[in-house]
Design a protein around this nucleic acid. Structure first.
Ligand SMILES: [Mn+2]
Ligand SMILES: [Mn+2]
Ligand SMILES: [Zn+2]
Ligand SMILES: [Zn+2]
Lengths: 146, 146
DNA sequence: TTTGTAGTTTAGAATTATTATAAACTAGAT
DNA sequence: ATCTAGTTTATAATAATTCTAAACTACAAA
């Protein structure tokens, strides 16, 4: 039955999300589970801002989650490594459910972030970090204009 | 005379700065000239924030320039292409008097930006921009941690 | 040189993303 | 069932930046 498999899939996914939260010391609260479902139960990874996530979560008849909790949760998920913060825009932080190392286009007109396919960028030379410092990450941002 | 050459050099530099401002349609006001001297009459290029520039400008017995004017001037210089904005930090904008295409280390601990020598990074493959878009710039940021 | 005006400076108010506060609530251990 | 540390929430505070509108000034034209 189509409907049965849907329900089953939903329950399995929820279990997985609870496991994911627990694995990083985060209590699986109603709010965190709902946000995690929104972020992770998808085909494709995507980019978002706290504002866009908050709109997405708090639309329709769904039960509401406070903006403070959305901020708290996004911060907790970032610290836990479930999402990645992308510092590309002047005015607001973007986040990425794709936590693999990868690069971005940033469209200055539409303010949209797009992943660059990993094999589309090749760095044949990378500098050594200064003494006493380690490379935390390396990101290429290609800014686009019309 | 040491003192004479100094004074002469200063006058020549000031003339050059006035020319630079005029060349981009900016009136050479007292405030803009002073800020431009601070930014451009140096041996080396450097990175700054509006806050750090404002402190630098408004310290000592020097005549004061309002914070609004520092913001206005930095914006005007950026639009004119005399400086470059670097979007690397979450909370505040950095600016760069090095307007040549180059890459950066960003020290997450000290929040310090450092230029990466141009020949220290080699990109052997760069993606095509999406249809209808042009590449405005490409920047590599290497984030450092202890 | 004086005058007119568009461009600029300025203090202060407004905006906006984000963080802090502190009281109410809850997951989960005992 | 009880306890408590962790969490949520409304709301206030913060901080970088932008806006406003009045005063000022560079400079073109008379
Ligand atoms: Mn901010
Ligand atoms: Mn801001
Ligand atoms: Zn991405
Ligand atoms: Zn630089």
């Amino acid at each position: 039955m189509i409907d049965l498999t849907k329900k089953l899939k939903y329950m399995v996914q929820k279990k997985e999300i609870i496991k994911k939260l627990r694995s990083t010391g985060l209590r699986p609260t109603k709010q965190r589970i709902l946000i995690a479902q929104n972020l992770f139960d998808r085909e494709k990874t995507f980019h978002f801002t706290v504002e866009s996530l908050n709109k997405q979560i708090n639309k329709k008849g769904k039960e509401k989650i406070s903006l403070a909790t959305v901020y708290n949760t996004v911060e907790a998920f970032t610290k836990a490594g479930h999402i990645k913060e992308i510092l590309t825009s002047k005015s607001k932080s973007y986040f990425d459910t794709n936590i693999r190392s990868h690069h971005h286009f940033y469209d200055e007109d539409s303010k949209e972030l797009t992943d660059i396919n990993y094999n589309q960028v090749k760095l044949s030379k990378v500098p050594h970090p200064p003494k006493g410092k380690k490379i935390k990450n390396l990101e290429v941002v290609i800014r686009l204009q019309k």
